[in-house]
Structure formats: C-alpha cells, structure tokens
Computed example of a mutant assay.
Amino acid sequence: MTRDDRAGVGLTVCLFLFFITGCATLPAEEEKTKDLAIIERWSGDFPVADLALLPNGQRHLRAGYIGGPHAFAAVWRAFKPGEKIPAVDFSRNLVVFSRNVDFYNRTTIMTVVLAGGGLEILAMETMSAMPIDDTVAMALAVVPRSGVDFILCGDVRVPVTDGR
C-alpha cells in the first residue's frame, strides 16, 4: 500500500466516523418542529355568554380546537352572526382558537407549530388593561389535522380526538 493509498483510506475512515458521529447527534424525527400552513383565519369578538359553545374542557383555556362541523357552526354563529359559515373539511383539518382570558385584547393567530404531535398556537395581541365584559376577543384558524395529537396551552395538553 502506497502512502497515497493510506492517506485515502485514512480520509475515508475519518469521513465515515464524522458521518456516524453527526448522525448520532441529530434530533429524533418527532422532536423536529414544523410550521403548519394556516389555511384560513379570522379574528373578532365572541360573546362571553356563548363560551359554553366551545368544546368541553376548553372553555376556560387560552387555546384549543374545534374538531367537527356541528360545534364549528354553533361557534361561528356566535362569532360572526349573519355571516355564512365557512366550509371546513374536518376529515383533513382542525379549527384552532386563541383568546386572552384575562383582558380584552384583539388577537390574531400568526403561526401554528407542530412538534412531537403537539400543536402550539402563537398569537399576536394588542396590549390593553381593558377587562373582559360582554365579549372576549378571539381568533380562529384552519390548520391541517395530520400528525396533531394534542394542543399545547401552557402546561395543559388538550387531546385531539377524532370527534368529527
């Protein structure tokens, strides 16, 4: 074996070890984050008297989801009275919501991130100290359902069920 051959073998071994070491430090696939497409979004006022229309277990939370057409239709009628209910394919999508539970702050859903089956809703709000009275500012967005196991709301995990 010549000196050049040994150098080539040494380089190949180093590259192989570097590749193996690099792969060992890569994060697992389920730990990767992915920004989900926001198919459609709306912001507006939602009557406090109609908070019972939000899904059970999510009425007091800042964020959650609506997984079926009947619940969405009821929420929409309170959210945008007199406006046509948008068509949402609930076999492929979810409607997520975000709101401030402490103050009346206008809000818009900016980004929805999926990581390890958990969906996190990132919203932008105005900053006010106006108390919540008759209405709460709320935002809704349609996002893909695939891969979503739960909605993250602070430390709370809201399980996403197949409740179409």
Results as ranks from 00 to 15, higher is better:
Leu15Met: 14
Val142Phe: 00
Ser128Ala: 03
Pro144Thr: 09
Arg6Pro: 00
Pro27Gly: 09
Phe16Met: 10
Val13Thr: 14
Asp102Val: 15
Pro144Ile: 08
Ala141Ser: 07
Ala7Asn: 03
Val142Asn: 00
Met130Thr: 10
Asn56Lys: 15
Arg77Met: 05
Val160Gly: 04
Ile121Phe: 07
Tyr104Thr: 09
Met1Gln: 01
Ser43Ala: 15
Gly154Cys: 13
Gly67Glu: 01
Gly163Pro: 01
Lys84Leu: 11
Pro131Phe: 07
Gly116Thr: 09
Ile85Val: 12
Asp149Gly: 12
Arg6Asp: 00
Gly118His: 05
Thr2Gln: 02
Ser128Leu: 12
Gly8Lys: 12
Glu30Trp: 11
Ala49Thr: 10
Gly117Trp: 08
Ala49Pro: 04
Thr12Arg: 03
Ile151Lys: 12
Arg41Gln: 14
Pro47Glu: 01
Thr12Ser: 07
Lys84Arg: 15
Phe18Pro: 05
Val13Glu: 07
Cys153Arg: 00
Gly163Asn: 12
Val156Lys: 11
Phe90Met: 03
Arg164Trp: 04
Ile39Gly: 00
Gly67Trp: 07
Val9Trp: 04
Cys153Gln: 06
Ile121Gly: 08
Gly44Asp: 12
Leu61Asn: 07
Val112Ser: 03
Met124Cys: 06
Pro55Gln: 08
Ala123Cys: 04
Arg92His: 08
Ala73Asn: 04
Asp35Arg: 13
Asp155Ala: 09
Arg99Phe: 10
Glu40Gln: 05
Val142Arg: 00
Val158Cys: 13
Thr135Asp: 09
Gly154Leu: 14
Gly8Arg: 09
Pro159Lys: 03
Leu54Arg: 09
Leu114Met: 05
Ala73Glu: 13
Lys32Arg: 15
Phe79Ile: 06
Thr25Gly: 10
Val9Ile: 13
Ala123Arg: 02
Arg99Ser: 08
Pro86Leu: 00
Met110Ala: 13
Gly118Arg: 12
Gly147Cys: 02
Phe72Ala: 05
Met1Tyr: 01
Asp134Gln: 11
Ala74Cys: 08
Lys34Asp: 03
Asp102Gly: 10
Leu122Phe: 12
Met127Tyr: 04
Phe46Glu: 13
Leu17Asp: 04
Leu114Lys: 06
Ile109Asp: 11
Ala123Pro: 04
Ala141Trp: 06
Glu120Ala: 14
Asp162Thr: 05
Val88Phe: 03
Asp155Ser: 11
Val113Gly: 01
Gly117Asn: 02
Arg164Met: 04
Val143Ala: 05
Pro47Asn: 01
Thr111Trp: 03
Arg59Asp: 07
Phe103Asn: 11
Val101Asp: 09
Leu53Ala: 14
